[in-house]
Each structure stands twice: as C-alpha cells, then as structure tokens.
C-alpha cells in the first residue's frame, strides 16, 4: 500500500518532468525556428514509464477488486433472510421452551 503510493507519486513526478521537458524543447525549437513534430525519444520513454507507474499505483492503492460475477463466492446468494417482519410466535417451538434459568439481571 505504502509502496504503491510512493510509486504513484514517483510516476506523477515523472509525468510532470516529461511535460516540462516538452515545453522546454518547444521553446528551444522556437529559438532555432524549426517545426515541432513531436517530443524527443527520451521524453517519450519517460512518458510511457510514467504512465505505467501511475497506472500500476492507481490499480493497487485503492484496494482489492471486488468480483462482479453473480456466481462468485461474494455475490452468490445461497439463502434469503428470514422474513422477520412476518415472524409469528405461536409455532411448534412453543411446546419446547428453552432453558428457563435465563434471566435479565439488573
């Protein structure tokens, strides 16, 4: 978690650095009066690296993925809740009272 966060920060820093490099490069091009066709290769590599690091951090830091499959263990419904609102008390359990020594002591 902590590592993932640090990696994420590092990724963002790299991205920012790539952006600054590109701006500087364009400035340089303007001085040299050349056309801008795209950032240089090392900036491209930096950009990709930053992208990968940020993506990895974004996928690991917030937590685990939850399953969306209806038949996965977390989602598969095996029984419905007892309909407690419609619970009735004169059932056959009435004939077999539970231990009578239970008492609320206050």
């Amino acid at each position: 978690m902590r590592l993932g966060f640090l990696v994420g920060v590092f990724g963002v820093v790299i991205l920012a650095h790539a952006a600054i490099s590109t701006i500087r490069y364009r400035g340089l091009l303007k001085i040299m009066e050349e056309e801008f066709y795209g950032p240089p290769a090392n900036v491209m590599v930096e950009l990709l690296l930053g992208l990968v690091l940020c993506m990895w951090a974004a996928l690991t830091v917030p937590g685990k993925f939850l399953s969306i499959h209806p038949h996965s263990e977390e989602n598969r419904i095996v029984s419905l809740p007892a309909n407690l609102d419609f619970m009735i008390f004169n059932h056959r359990g009435k004939v077999f009272p539970v231990a009578t020594d239970l008492k609320l002591k206050h």
Partner: peptide, 19 residues
C-alpha cells in the same frame, strides 16, 4: 427482546422491554 418472544421466554422479553 424479540428473540425471547420467539423462544417463549416472556419474562426476559418483558424485562428487556421495560428497560
């Protein structure tokens, strides 16, 4: 209290409801 009603331990339930 509700569980006690279901088990017919009416005294317990009564005490809980009183509290």
């Amino acid at each position: 209290a509700i569980a006690a009603l279901d088990c017919q331990s009416l005294d317990v339930s009564k005490d809980c409801i009183k509290v």
